[in-house]
């Protein structure tokens, strides 16, 4: 029996699939990021031209920075709203708790495109948001400030990605042993004290990693800016996307994607590190 070489062959076959599906394509676009476009033709000559171009044109790195800021705000809103909600649901008991969390993550399963589209109809000049605001006399008349700009992108992303923040927070709350909470109130701590000194610290790692993953999701999104951002709503994802569409500059797109990749990778590593800090 040639056990050793049989095993090696099996190993190679199994590894081949993820390698072909993931590693080679990624290596390929890293390589292509050093090439350039000349009269609508991709020229295979290595240089840092695309990267230099990115760093020397404020339009590009400006968009990159403002996108980072936008995604940060999306994550922050997610945590600010998501934490209280996750906490509230976690405090419920039995079936109610399970049902509520289920309903909160159910929207994740619903068509992404459709959610963006409905957000657009809601935020539009004749949308429900404006109708409500006018009805409650908060606005004199319907306003365009909620649609086809960066605000629209922020609101839409915040709504769409909210369940992605709630779920990890809820799961990290669930991991806290109930007797810790009981022990704390046994020792005379009120709800707020327990929250401050027991629950918050213990659920922090999960919360941070949840927020960071949402950050990555928002970072790569290009459909939301395209649909609700209008002509001014450019984000880094949308800029990359356009290099593969009308702008047609794959090498530049690849270079920008490498920058996106690096940013996402660092964020994911940070998230991984955060979730390892958990003590329960």
């Amino acid at each position: 029996m040639n056990n050793q070489s049989t095993r090696f062959t099996i190993f190679v076959c199994i590894i081949a699939v993820p390698v072909v599906l993931v590693i080679i394509p990624i290596a390929n676009f890293f390589l292509m990021s050093f090439w350039k476009m000349e009269s609508n033709q991709i020229v295979e000559s290595a240089s840092f031209g695309n990267y230099l171009y990115f760093f020397s044109s404020p339009a590009y790195w400006g968009t990159f920075l403002s996108t980072l800021y936008l995604c940060l705000k999306v994550s922050a809103i997610g945590v600010l709203v998501g934490y209280p909600v996750a906490y509230f649901v976690w405090k419920r008991k039995g079936r109610v708790k399970y049902l509520l969390i289920l309903l909160l993550i159910l929207p994740l399963f619903m068509s992404y495109i459709v959610k963006i589209y409905t957000m657009r109809t809601i935020l539009d000049l004749s949308g429900i948001l404006n109708k409500l605001l006018v009805a409650f006399h908060i606005l004199e008349e319907p306003s365009r400030q909620f649609i086809y700009n960066q605000t629209a992108i922020l609101i839409t992303m915040a709504v769409i990605f909210l369940p992605f923040v709630i779920l990890p927070i809820f799961l990290s709350l669930e991991r806290i042993p109930k007797n810790l909470v009981t022990a704390s109130s046994d020792l005379g701590a009120g709800t707020l004290t327990t929250l401050r000194y027991v629950i918050l610290p213990l659920s922090l790692p999960g919360t941070v990693s949840g927020a960071l993953f949402t950050f990555v999701l928002a970072l790569g999104d290009f459909v939301t800016p395209q649909m609700v951002g209008g002509p001014n709503g450019f984000t880094f994802g949308r800029v990359i996307w356009s290099q593969f569409g009308l702008a047609y500059n794959w090498p530049l797109g690849a270079a920008l994607a490498v920058i996106l990749f690096a940013t996402a990778l660092m964020t994911i590593i940070a998230a991984g590190w955060a979730s390892q800090q958990r003590k329960v």
Binding site: N28, D221, L260, A264, L265, I268
Partner: peptide, 9 residues
């Protein structure tokens, strides 16, 4: 990774 990376790669 963001899907855009998988897509364009």
């Amino acid at each position: 990774m963001p899907p855009i990376i998988t897509g364009l790669s």
